[in-house]
Amino acid sequence: MNLNRRQLLTRTVGVSLAGLFGVQSRAFATPEAVAEAVKSFSGDSEPGSGRIKLTTPEIAENGNSVPIGVSVDSPMSDDDYVTQVVIYADGNPNPDVITFNFTPASGEATASTRMRLAKTQNVVAVAKMSDGSVFTDTRNIKVTIGGCGG
């Protein structure tokens, strides 16, 4: 293939631009999408802070497997317990991460798992109590290597 300098330059720029747009066209979750999801999950109640604690590392070296834990302060009795805790991530391809469904037989509203993080972002945990009140906690996690492949 015979290319002069000008042609080579145009083609290279073309290819890199295509690459750039290719990346941008992939939809990622946004903080707005997460705020919207939190709002629809909480219904009428205004999310409060406290009572719920999200435990994450400050820096995740490998986004493929990041340990996260959530713990909600609740007596977990038959008439006062945590029904659900939802975790969202605002920089992943999809904001949903996991929904924990607790029962009074859980004894303690505590759960942990390992999640994927595509890039540095906020992780939001929202807890819903049996009386309908909602509590939330947010942690920022710095990700060194993203974990969503592709």
Binding site: N64, S65, V66, G69, M76, A89, N92, N94, D96, V97, I98, F100, P104, A105, S106, G107, E108, A109, T110, A111, S112, T113, R114, M115, R116, G147
Partner: peptide, 13 residues
């Protein structure tokens, strides 16, 4: 968004 080999830790009374 949950990592491969799903790990879960929770409590029960």
């Amino acid at each position: 968004a949950i990592a491969a080999n799903p790990y879960l830790e929770f409590k029960a009374k």
